[in-house]
């Protein structure tokens, strides 16, 4: 039983939300880059309201996947630190941590935002592997959007290191070279509570949601990744409405990068 749900629903009927926001209104978004200048090649801290996430980028050299011998690789990891939410527990990543990393991974991968061909050092033998590590510091709702924004802000902030082919070692000194990035999508999460569609759900709204849809939108309004969550079903019409909302809000968020 969720006591908040009834209260949230009564507010939605009056066209308002727990924190007095409009349905289409995000909390304040702040993006700070280079928060870990010494140890990460790129990093960012993103806050959406009280939700706070840090993302860091590291690079290593490894073997390419056999089906893409001339392309670099990307690995996204998310760790739900117990300090970030009463719901998170220590230990190996659970299903929610995996979902968070998959949602970030999928949007970047499917949009081909990283030009992986330019991360090839020697075809079939050595390529750069980009590690994106995500650490929520505080979960006050909408961790997905915050984590994704932190990941792409960190990617944009990344300065590459050099690989010395003679010694076969990485020279750990940042160069001026940025990561080869192409068109980055923006991810937007919409939740449905009763008949209302809300952007940027806070913690209580997430607890009360019926369904959730995370949509990754490219600059030309095409959709490159999507994932439904929540325990209730959605009709096709509802899905299309949520996509319209995501496309509209993605435009606003893109301006902040």
């Amino acid at each position: 039983m969720n006591i908040n749900k009834e209260y949230i629903e009564s507010l939605l009927i009056k066209n308002t939300r727990l924190d007095n926001r409009k349905f289409k209104e995000y909390r304040k978004i702040t993006i700070e880059t280079d928060v870990s200048p010494k140890s990460a090649l790129g990093s960012a801290r993103v806050k959406i309201g009280d939700t706070e996430v840090i993302a860091g980028i590291k690079m290593d050299v490894g073997e390419p996947y056999p089906d893409t011998p001339d392309e670099g690789a990307m690995i996204v990891n998310a760790e739900l630190l117990p300090l970030a939410s009463p719901k998170f527990e220590g230990g190996p990543p659970g299903v929610n941590a995996i979902e968070l990393s998959r949602i970030v991974d999928r949007a970047i991968r499917e949009s081909k935002a990283i030009d992986t061909k330019k991360l090839c050092i020697k075809k079939g033998e050595k390529v750069w592997i980009v590690f994106i590590d995500i650490y929520p510091i505080n979960d006050s709702g909408n961790l997905f959007d915050a984590a994704y924004l932190a990941a792409i802000a960190a990617l944009k902030n990344t300065k590459m290191v050099k690989y010395d082919a003679k010694t076969e070692k990485i020279v750990y000194e940042k160069t001026n070279k940025s990561l080869p990035l192409l068109n980055l999508p923006i991810e937007c999460t919409i939740v449905k509570i009763n008949d209302a569609f809300l952007v940027d759900p806070n913690y209580e709204e997430e607890e009360a949601m019926d369904a959730r849809l995370t949509v990754a939108v490219l600059e030309d309004d095409s959709i490159c990744a999507m994932q439904k969550g929540g325990d209730q079903p959605l009709s096709i019409e509802e899905v299309l409405k949520m996509i319209d909302l995501a496309i509209e809000k993605a435009k606003d968020i893109r301006k902040k990068l």
Binding site: E110, L213, S222, I223, M226, K228, P233, L234, V239, L240
Partner: peptide, 30 residues
């Protein structure tokens, strides 16, 4: 889909589509 109410219980997407293509695809899926 839950076929009696035509509501979606699973929806994922990987790739690149326009909204009208997605609409067409969902109708075909239904």
């Amino acid at each position: 889909f839950m076929p009696r109410t035509n509501k979606l219980t699973l929806l994922q997407l990987d790739g690149n589509v326009k909204k009208d293509e997605l609409k067409q695809a969902l109708e075909m899926a239904k």
